[in-house]
Nucleic acid binder design. Sequence first.
RNA 1: CGGGGCGUAGCGCAGUCCGGUUAGCGCGCAGCGUUCGGGACGCUGAGGUCGGAGGUUCAAAUCCUCUCGCCCCGACCA
Length: 493
Amino acid sequence: MRLSNLFGKTLRQTPAEAENISHQLLLKAGMINQLAAGVYSYLPLAFNVQSYRDLPLLLYQIQTKFRDEPRPRGGLMRVREFGMKDLYSFDANEECLNTTYQKLITAYKRIYERCGLDFVVVEADSGAIGGKESHEFMVLAESGEDIILSCSKCDYAANVEKAESVKPEGKTGEMLQIEQVATPGRVTIEEVANFLNVPEIQTLKAVFYAADGVMVFVAIRGDIEVNEVKLKNALGCHELRLATEDEVSNAGLVAGSASPLGLSGIKRIGDPSIALGANLVAGGNKPDTHLRNVNYPRDFAIDLMVDIATARAGEGCPICGAPLIAKKGIEVGHVFKLGSFFTERMGATFLDRDGVAYPILMGCYGIGIGRLLAAAIEQNHDEKGIIWPIPIAPYQVHLCPLSSDNQEVVTKVENLYAELTREGLEVIFDDREESPGVKLNDADLLGMPLRVVLSPRSLKSGSVELKMRCKKEAVLVPLDGASREITAMLPSK
RNA sequence: CGGGGCGUAGCGCAGUCCGGUUAGCGCGCAGCGUUCGGGACGCUGAGGUCGGAGGUUCAAAUCCUCUCGCCCCGACCA
């Protein structure tokens, strides 16, 4: 550790508030900071930063978060209280923040690699706190609750909440005159498309939302689903939900046959897909009635055109156009460029070279520890049990004597246990009086990287048996010098 | 918060519909003996507010009302 990287700052004078020597020295050494009477933080506050010369600054914490998750599920996957390692970065300008952000993405990637995880870094929605850029670390697993779209050619990858795509174009051609058609009882896009014998891509979907209680009209091509995260961001609202039937009819609209034509007094949002194709089928704003040959912008106007489409597998990558692929992932880390979102509000500034105060630019970087553990097991197991990746295994070695009433086995395994421990290895020793089947099955279940079996059978040849949990075969090595072999099989942590 | 399922011995369950001996079974646990390289066997034994409260009844694990908890699906989710 370099002192220049250490966050604490020593004081030149002894603070007058301190009476006893430990208090004085702790304060003076910069190890504690008083928050209130009888309340101390173990390091000074981040917002004591005064000079650009103290930046960049990185602070991390590992602590329990209580979030009272509304939907706990899946064991450690989704819990109400969880351990989180997070880090906050403080930079003087955009360029430095970018550098810090990239460095931390690299560092986090290394963490997940060492955990033995198959993961991808994806572009993510930055959520309620905003922020310019955000990435998630996704462990690929069928049990994952997030959908990832990644390019089959280039390295574009994004959470479906954020993902963009190139949509297929509908039929184009000369714009025809609007025709009214009867569509008795047909309400959904699927029903209308089937009834009129047109593909869904040739239809226009109208959806109504309540955004912080205000009605919003959304127009999107019929084959595409609205991405509510994108819509929420576009509207800048806190609460977004589908409008209720009453809200729709009170606004003078006809659910199932709603149309952007002739709308007024309501905010209209359009997805660019409505311009990809000509002569669409849209609602007629009368029950059981639709319109053919509706064209944007010839026939209706909107107030805001913005991408609010849900991307799907098979659509084009926004970078290179190659088809996108969908996978499921478990979010085990999330990083954000917060910028000055918090620091402006809290007056956390620094003085630049010219003595002018600017808000510090922040980043935040979190890893869910329990979920990481669960994700590691989702990916590393077989029908017998866990297969711990070495760096996160609770113990490196599972020492397993068979025949615990055999005096020779007992003596030699105790010696081996002592020796391995002395070598600095982490050893779990199965000293229970259990049958071989029970012990071996438990060894597979617990899944420590290396299993060491000592038995009358192996002792006949003066050997112990070594088996990596991730491999099928075991090897016999001489008991003498076994600890060297064992150490050699385990890359140091 | 909505929809579904489940709470009976440490664990896994049967019994509940149709109320009626002392609430069973498997695993585990304790003791003794045999066994000992892939979840051994025999004998003996311990272990229960049937999630909780109220009600109906001569009688409630079982019927009714309320309530708590857990699991799954959906809403939600730095």
